[in-house]
Simulated scan of single mutants.
Amino acid sequence: MQIERTPVVFIHGLWLHAASWTPWLEMFREAGYDPIAPGWPNEPDTVEGARANPDAVANTSIDDAVGHYAKIIAELPVAPIIIGHSFGGMVAEKLLGQGVGAAAVAIDPAQIKGVLALPLAQLRSALPALKNPANLHRSVSLTRDEFRYGIGNALTPEESDALYDAWAIPAPARPLFQVSAANFAPHSEARVDTGNPDRGPLLLISGTNDHTVPDASTRSSFRQYRDSAAVTELRTFEGRGHSLTVDHGWREVAGVVLEWLAGQGLRA
């Protein structure tokens, strides 16, 4: 009799391709899980394809991404663990709040409705998309310098540029506009059901040197769950930036995630 391996769904954020999860897939597979890393709606299968066709992902909204991953998860044999980074972290939070998945890990998650903290570094990181209102329905690419400030700021310029060359792709600007207006929109797609007592456990992870989603924003998101009876925990990585899932220290972060999952009884 074949025993089902626990599935894990990895969800990336803006400006990084799904293939950037490849080392995590290998590590989780070796740990006994059954991991996958599907791209966002209409995302080309390769970094080169995504760069060649930037309009493929244009105008994708938060709920478009949530619905896309919900359909993928519905086809899995058992409820998966959902692990997301940046906007992928927000998607993971939304799915778990809706009762989708056995547990979730949100790494440097994009701020949800109700988070008021807006550090200057976060605003500057979002400017490549937000500086032009016409970008709402477009995709936007980062320059090397913009990538280095928003994602690779805690790295050497050489490592940041290498990550840019390997994984950077155009991203839809619409989710950033949705988050920036979330607290003024009654039915914002950035809203997460933080009070659901029946959801699975949730781990939030932040890096103290993150410019794109500063530690203050992640801590504020964590406080949104204070009235929930479900398990919600926060782990912080000192000196790490938004690149912590793809840079030289990714294995440390992945190891903490595996340890936490085991502590929740969610072994492979």
Rank of each mutant, 00 (worst) to 15 (best):
P214Y: 03
P197A: 04
L234E: 08
L176Y: 01
L234R: 10
S206T: 15
L202Y: 10
G239S: 05
S188K: 07
T194W: 01
H187I: 03
A171T: 09
H211D: 03
R240Q: 09
R235G: 00
P175G: 10
L244Y: 02
S180N: 14
S243I: 10
N183Y: 00
R199W: 08
H211I: 05
D215N: 13
G200Q: 05
A216F: 06
G239L: 07
S180C: 07
G200F: 03
H187G: 02
T218I: 03
A168Q: 12
A229K: 15
E189H: 13
H211W: 07
V192C: 04
L176Q: 09
G241W: 09
R174E: 12
S188H: 05
G207Y: 12
Q178W: 01
V179P: 00
S188R: 06
V192F: 03
P172G: 10
D210V: 02
S206Y: 15
S206E: 15
A229T: 15
R235E: 11
Y225N: 08
L176G: 03
T236L: 11
A171P: 07
D210Y: 02
P201F: 03
E233S: 14
A190L: 00
P186S: 12
G200S: 06
S243H: 01
P197E: 03
G241P: 11
I205L: 15
H187Q: 10
R219L: 13
S243D: 13
S217L: 01
G207K: 12
I169G: 10
E189K: 12
G239W: 01
A181V: 11
A185T: 14
V179T: 08
A181H: 02
S206V: 15
G207N: 11
R174V: 14
F177K: 06
V213E: 04
H242W: 02
D193L: 04
D215C: 15
T212G: 05
A173E: 04
I169A: 08
S228L: 12
S221D: 03
L244W: 01
D193Q: 05
F184D: 00
R219F: 13
S188F: 03
H242P: 11
P201H: 12
P214E: 02
A168K: 01
V179D: 00
S243K: 10
V213R: 05
Q178N: 11
P214G: 02
